[in-house]
């Protein structure tokens, strides 16, 4: 559970503090970017997310590397299920 997973910032919401729509392996959900307030991410950038919060910004190359490792670890599917919130509607 300590592994953070890479996600791409798809949309930011002006006026809505620290909220972003991200995509993880084709699945989209909202996350909180409050932990990156010193260097807020922009649309199209990659972040490492952990339990619904962006922990750090990473390069695209690093993100793709990590996705491959997660797939090899057999964690990618579990990560996607987690991100989907186990059916709990993310709105």
């Amino acid at each position: 559970m300590c592994l953070a997973i890479p996600a791409k910032i798809i949309e930011l919401y002006p006026g809505e503090e620290n909220r972003a729509l991200v995509e993880v392996a084709g699945v989209r959900r909202h996350i909180d970017t409050g932990l990156l307030e010193d260097d807020p991410p922009k649309t199209g950038e990659w972040v490492l997310i952990h339990v619904g919060f962006a922990l750090s910004k990473i390069s695209e190359e690093e993100a793709l590397d990590q996705i491959r490792v997660l797939t090899m670890l057999g964690e990618q599917q579990a990560a996607v299920e987690e991100v989907q919130g186990y059916g709990l509607n993310d709105s």
């Binding site: 909180d32 339990v51 619904g52 919060f53 987690e82 991100v83 989907q84 919130g85 186990y86 709990l88 993310d90």
Partner: peptide
Amino acid sequence: RIVYSPAD
């Protein structure tokens, strides 16, 4: 209930 995030 299982949650992915404390925010959920």
